[in-house]
Nucleic acid binder design. Structure first.
Lengths: 237, 237
DNA sequence: TGCGCCAATATGTGATCACAAATAGCCGGT
DNA sequence: ACCGGCTATTTGTGATCACATATTGGCGCA
């Protein structure tokens, strides 16, 4: 059972508890889509992989359940939830309403330094797209948004939004891996322009369009093709 | 350390794990505001109160941390977070955008039975207000909303919204306990009318107004008076 | 009175274990 | 081939413990 390039979760000198380190590692890997939808996560398997005892893993999994990053099944097993069309549409809708509002509320606190950082992240995304580096592509994308929404240094919206990213991440990776093209309009660029102009409406529109573009269409198509494949598989069983 | 009318968390015949029972109990009590903002929750204290070992309590607390119902402090202690004006405003704003969207998305799935149930809950709220039964007042209010948003039987929006209710609950109870009056317009009644008429815009308006009315004004005033009291207290120290 | 130090106590964390519950595989019967 | 029963194995849960960390209280000194 290989979850990607794991090694020990322990980092020498890290002041965080083991539990926090494990949680951080798992969150990152889920958000980057490095664990497939449907994949089960076992306490003992993860503990062995990360070279820790069961306790920090158990506690981390509890947190991930609460964040909806993983689902607790009837048989008490934990897995990355498979994606459905309805769930996908709900996740996109929730992202749109929360992120547009968060962006608007953040605008008064956005400094030139923040804009510069966001521009750097956007450039990183572009480079990652060119070489199909999915980790950076997805990671920098979320970081771009987090940079903006976190500008006020407050903590109500971002955890909600991160829960959505955790839920969408495993699927997002599959979606961009299966797409040959990318959507033509750089909405991040539009968002940056809106921020520089302090144009709230344009910022909202850019953020919403960014969330809705491409991935929405790719996502729906991929879910349908996976549902078709799943039905065939059920027919064989 | 008394957390309210606790007894054993174990219920004979309950198929749920102890952990799930503890979590459910704590979530309920936090959402109903039965634990004060600022109150610390200790693993051993809760375990003794609920007559269980530390394990299910630890795991439940981890979930509550992830749901932002409680905050993990720098000293590793867990407490109900105190309220600030900024946080309060953010929570209201997040509730508005999420709940209005959830209501709209739920409308196609709302049956006559659901409307009847919501009307019954609204009547219960009115009765509870008259006798100052805060548990029913708050509980039925959230249940009214949950009934609506859960109409589609889906699970993306409701956990996000419940996290907000968990964050607002402790403060909400204090706010309504300190208020002599209640706001004059029954927004729930308006929501029910909108549902019966299948009027999406009216439903949105009613839900948003319900969230914003009264509690917003009461809340801001109470936070200011508590901040004032806190400053005096710091002056004496 | 305020500060620093130290010891006692409280609290959280990680490890481990026994047991409960679920799963997988095998065998026999229809 | 399918189903049911049984056993072995896997996995989750709750309990407990030792240790690490944080807090509290008391004492001495300026």
């Amino acid at each position: 059972m290989d979850y990607g390039d794991f090694g020990e979760a322990r980092i020498m000198g890290d002041p965080r508890t083991l539990q926090a380190q494990v949680l951080s590692r798992l969150r990152r890997n889920i958000m980057l889509g490095r664990i497939e939808p449907g994949q089960s996560l076992t306490i003992r398997g993860l503990a062995e992989e990360l070279d820790v005892s069961a306790m920090p893993v158990r506690e981390a999994l509890r947190q991930l359940v609460a964040e909806r990053a993983v689902e607790l099944q009837d048989n008490r097993r934990v897995r990355i939830p498979p994606m459905t069309i309805e769930r996908f549409n709900d996740l996109i809708a929730a992202r749109v309403v929360l992120e547009a509002e968060a962006a608007e509320r953040a605008m008064p606190y956005v400094t030139e330094a923040i804009i510069a950082e966001m521009a750097e992240l956007d450039a990183a995304i572009t480079r990652a797209e060119a070489v199909r580096d999915y980790d950076v592509w997805i990671g920098a994308n979320f970081a771009f948004h987090a940079c903006l929404y976190g500008a006020a240094g407050r903590s109500t919206f971002l955890p909600l939004i991160e829960s959505l990213w955790l839920q969408v991440g495993p699927f997002l990776r599959r979606a961009i891996m299966s797409s040959d093209t990318h959507y033509a309009v750089d909405r991040h660029h539009e968002a940056l322009t809106a921020l520089r102009l302090r144009d709230t409406m344009a910022l909202r529109i850019a953020i919403e369009a960014d969330i809705r573009d491409g991935i929405s269409h790719i996502g729906s198509t991929l879910i349908r093709s996976e549902a078709r494949r799943s039905a065939v598989s059920a027919g064989n069983a």
